[in-house]
Structures are given as structure tokens and as C-alpha cells.
Amino acid sequence: MLNIYTIRKQAALILSICGAILLFSTLSSAEVPRRLISLAPNITEILFALGVQDRVVGVSSFCDFPEEAKRKPKVGGMSNPSIEAVISLRPDLVLFSIDGNPKEFEERVRGMHIKTFTLRTKQIAELPEGIRQIGAAVGARQRAEELALDIERKISSLEQGRRARHALAKRQKVLFIIWPDPLIVAGPRSITDDALRLLGVENIAGDTVSTYPKYSIEEILRRAPDIIFIGKGNGMDRVSDSLLGRLKNVPAVRNGKVFYVSDYLYRLGPRTIKGVEELAGHLDAR
């Protein structure tokens, strides 16, 4: 027969276990931030892709994708967000990008006892890891893992395409034009340059000092790119006609290998891989 004390002991044990579970679950739910502010367009895109858009209470004025992001309250530009706007939205977590947001602003927000997260991703290969970190920070680990795995799969299939292209006799020379007048192209350390590397083609502007250099037209004639990509922008087709007229003897222009492509490669987010695949499609088209 059970002793009354034993019953009491067991009941106390069960109660305390239940209490611990309850406490733990409330604690961990308190850890999931409910009000997010994203200060970079690529982070906003990742948050939407992770399905936590309802918790996003503020974005930067550059966050224009997806369409719904434009309707979120704005807290200012990437380099000059408004501290008042950020605080008045009472965020639990403010997400920064190392690429474009000032470090001092992050320190100020942290000084106000608001949690911050800084995305340090700079290359396509680091993107899955960055997405996992954001997933962990906002409590969407599973969706983040799925998205990261999907991107990893796509990167490795792009790498197969690169090996096939390497097997070709001649390495293709590519130029990616960001703006035609004055001529700004994608140089080293840009996401676009990274994409071209991933695709196994040579970026003829890969040897400049600056990331988005103003490029010499006569060097384009000399280096004779086989393919020219032009990123879509405001009034782009019109302005670039006069540029292409000047490049008419370059192999890319002569052979009709000039392609207008989307702006997916301008930010490191869920759409970046689509941008790389778009370039790959043009490279392999016969």
C-alpha cells in the first residue's frame, strides 16, 4: 500500500515537472521575437520567404520586394534609418545587413536594449548559412532549413554546369553592365562577379580596384567580351542603345549575345539563385 508521503512526493514531483515544462515553454515562446524590423531589402525578402511577414512591423525604404513589403511602415533609408521611427514601432528584434547599414546605428539600437541581428553574408556560397541564422533568430528554423537546402541543391547543380563549361575549349568572357552612361559595370567582390565565378566564365572587369567601377570603353573593345549582360534599370534599354552602337564590333554585340537580365543579382537573397540560373540559361543557349 502506498504511503501518503510517497503519494505526496510523487505528486510534488509531477507538479514540479509540469511546472518546469510550462515555464520552459513560456520562456522559449518569449524568446521568439514578435515584432521585427528589417533594414535591408535582402533581409526583408528572406523574412517573407520564411513566412514570418506578419511579424515584420517595419522595413527600409529600399525594401520593395515582394509587393507586400512596400506596404510595411518605412523607417528610412539603408544608410540613414530614423532611430525614432525604429523605436516607435517597439521592435523585439532589428535585423541589419553588414552590407549597407551603418555599424553605429546597430550599436545605438542595441544601446536602447533592443535585440539586434546582423547578417554577415557577402557571397552566394554563404547565403544558405545566412538564411539558417536568420531562421534561428526569428524562430523559423524549419522553413529556413528547407530554403537553405533548396539553395544548396541549386548551387551544386550550377556547379555541375560550371564543370561542363570548363570542359569547353575556350572560356567565355563576360561583361555585366549595371549602368550605361556613365558606364558602370560589376567588378570584383560584387554578387554578380561571384555569380559569374560560380558559372565558370571570366568577368572581364574582375581585375579592377573598385566593386562597381566606371569602366573604360576602349578596354571593352580590347578585351572583346563574348557575352554582355545588361541589368534592367530605369530607362535602361533606351540609354544603352547608344552604348551598344559604340561597341558594335565587339563579339558579343556582333553575334547578338547581348542579354537584358533581371535585377535579381543586385541583392543576396532568395531570388539571387534565380538570377544566376537566368545567366546560365543565356550562356548555354545555342
Partner: peptide
């Protein structure tokens, strides 16, 4: 203006001879 095109187009005003033809 958050129009990147405008910013790039206005680079020209700070002195650019590269497009001279």
C-alpha cells in the same frame, strides 16, 4: 527618390567624358 537610376544618371553631372562621341 529611391530611384537608383536617377542617382547613377546624375553621376554624369560631376564630370564625365567617357561617353563623348
Amino acid at each position: 527618390s529611391s530611384d537608383e537610376g536617377l542617382r547613377k544618371a546624375m553621376l554624369w553631372i560631376f564630370g564625365d567624358l567617357s561617353m563623348s562621341d
